[in-house]
Design a protein around this nucleic acid. Structure first.
Length: 497
RNA sequence: GCCCCCAUCGUCUAGAGGCCUAGGACACCGCCCUUUCACGGCGGCGACGGGGAUUCGAAUUCCCCUGGGGGUACCA
């Protein structure tokens, strides 16, 4: 943005055939970062030329996912812009113009082959050990033959006449990539239904939308020589290319549903924070060059550069994503975190039904008790439910904590204290503070582990759990009293409900 | 089969000829903190796929092999 060179214009161009996946999200992120860093423009373009699989619904779903992540764009099907329309099915005339030009230049020709014929050809070629490329047989059709086929009702596709020469793709991430002459067959640029294929549409749009940098997934690299040749045939200036490596599953296969969540929406539903996902994704295939690990979006914009994008594919590690999320949850502003913890805990109806659920003080306690123990927000209902399960059984390994007479006497007094203050007042909180509990123990001649272990076992059935000075105010006096009474009564035979 | 890409700890990565007895992060293990758990702090385990070549010197350059991935569609 400080140079006099052409303003950076990049685009994220998903096919609206489903939801936004993590790979697409990372591509979108890199485009976003590059645009923002350069003070350029990010274009969102809907590549919906596969009419069978595309849907308007998917288009909005993907936009929603991008918005949830906190990514925005400057031009697109929803916001418009100087190069509208931004949906490929709304741009048919432009592709038709390009196709007509190709035909006129005799750089493309109609192909009347049926899918079955092409299939048979491919099978035959493979049987002979030849590359399964299109033979180019329609290239030499005479005008008479064409009109015959035409009259027979055949709808032709338009094929590009691949020039017989080497093609070089200059890639910002990979360097110069060489595709030898003869390795690419005549490819279809316009389908028989009249819509362009990806390669033609992308070239026409990237050119007309003045895209300066095409940052996209690695899987498009083999398409790029076809696009390069199209740019040349149409006399159009090429953008710069940058192909980002794929995200792989732990088994090094293509990431798919069978490896767990792949859609951004699934992470949202599982209680991941957008900043955590973004941060994790940014570090897959890119690194700042120093030891920093956590970045806000603004910090990413500041640190990002294409030069630091890795060439090798990256394996998606759910465990590390979880760590990022836990990290982000703990660093949320208090008010925001408390609200989120309450919101997610309320998915457990018994928690939402608690009379104290709406008290701000109680919600803060719930937050402090649970936050350190979860990686994702979706773990909260279960965590919270566990705390409020009054019917717990005593862990046999810990039952001995209830044996000493001094412990029983101490618990009995604690129950009395609880019974005398049957509200959630500050008095109760004070009564179970660390100091107050120590004083209680002193009256019965016990302290430390001998004091806290029986309390914890009586209250939760286990000697492992949350902090007592948090847990007891959270449970409230009457619930604590009831638990202690129940355990004291059934001590010899641990309750089994 | 053919074309293309890639190759450092289990995983994400730093490393652009000597600074590398290869650094950081996640995971794992241990210790500390602590009534418990978690958080946090400290420490440990752990990698340059193989072979040639260039060089005084290679994780870093080149070649071959091997391995992995992608493409080979009238999907993008």
């Amino acid at each position: 943005m400080t140079t006099g060179s052409a303003k950076v214009r990049v685009r994220f161009a998903p096919a609206p055939t489903g939801t936004l996946h993590v790979g697409g999200a990372r591509t979108a992120l890199f485009n976003y970062l590059y645009a923002r860093k350069a003070g350029g423009t990010l274009v969102l373009r809907s590549e919906d030329t596969d009419t069978a699989r595309s849907s308007a619904d998917s288009e909005t779903v993907i936009q929603d996912d991008l918005h949830w992540l906190g990514l925005d764009w400057d031009e697109g099907p929803d916001v418009g812009g100087p190069f509208a329309p931004y949906r490929q099915t709304d741009r048919r005339e432009r592709y038709a113009l390009a196709a007509a030009r190709l035909l006129e230049l005799e750089k493309a020709y109609p192909c009347y082959c049926t899918p079955q014929e092409l299939d048979a050809e491919r099978v035959a070629a493979e049987a002979k050990g030849l590359p399964p490329r299109y033979s180019g047989k329609c290239r030499t059709l005479t005008a008479a033959q064409r009109s015959d086929l035409e009259r027979a009702g055949r709808k032709p596709a338009l094929r590009f006449a691949m020039p017989d020469r080497d093609v070089y793709v200059e890639d910002l991430i990979r360097g110069s990539v060489h595709f030898p002459a003869g390795t690419i067959g005549d490819f279809v640029v316009v389908k028989s239904e009249g819509l362009p294929t990806y390669n033609l549409a992308a070239v026409v749009d990237d050119s007309e939308m003045a895209i300066t940098h095409v940052i996209r997934g690695d899987e498009h690299l083999p398409n790029t020589p076809r696009q390069v040749v199209l740019y040349e045939a149409l006399g159009l200036a090429q953008p710069l290319f940058a192909h980002v490596s794929m995200i792989l599953a732990p088994d090094h296969q293509k990431l798919s549903k069978r490896h767990g969540a792949t859609a951004v929406a699934e992470y949202r539903e599982q209680g991941y924070l957008p900043g955590a996902l973004l941060n994790y994704l940014a570090l897959l295939g890119w690194s700042p060059g120093d030891d920093r690990e956590t970045f806000s979006l603004a910090e990413l914009v500041d640190a990002f550069s294409l030069e630091r994008v890795a060439k090798s594919p990256a394996v998606f590690d759910h465990g590390k994503l979880r760590w990022f999320n836990a990290h982000y949850v703990r660093r949320l502003p208090d008010a925001e975190r408390i609200a989120l913890v309450a919101q997610w805990s309320a998915r457990e109806p018994r928690i939402a039904a608690l009379p104290e659920f709406n008290q701000p003080h109680w919600r803060a306690l719930l937050d402090r008790t649970l936050t350190e123990h979860v990686h994702t927000l979706s773990e909260l209902p279960k965590e919270a439910a566990a705390i409020f399960d009054d019917g717990f059984a005593i862990d046999p390994a810990s039952a001995d904590a209830l044996d000493p007479p001094a412990a029983r006497a101490m618990l009995d007094e604690l129950a009395q204290i609880a019974e005398s203050k049957l509200d959630m007042s500050a008095e109760w909180t004070a009564a179970v503070s660390r100091d107050a509990l120590s004083a209680l123990g002193a009256r019965h001649g016990i302290k430390g582990r001998a004091l806290f272990r029986p309390i914890r076992v009586a209250l939760t059935g286990s000697e492992h759990g949350h902090e007592l000075p948090l847990l007891m105010p959270l449970l409230g006096p009457s619930r604590c009293a009831a638990r202690i009474r129940r355990v004291l009564a059934g001590k010899d035979r641990p309750p089994s409900d």
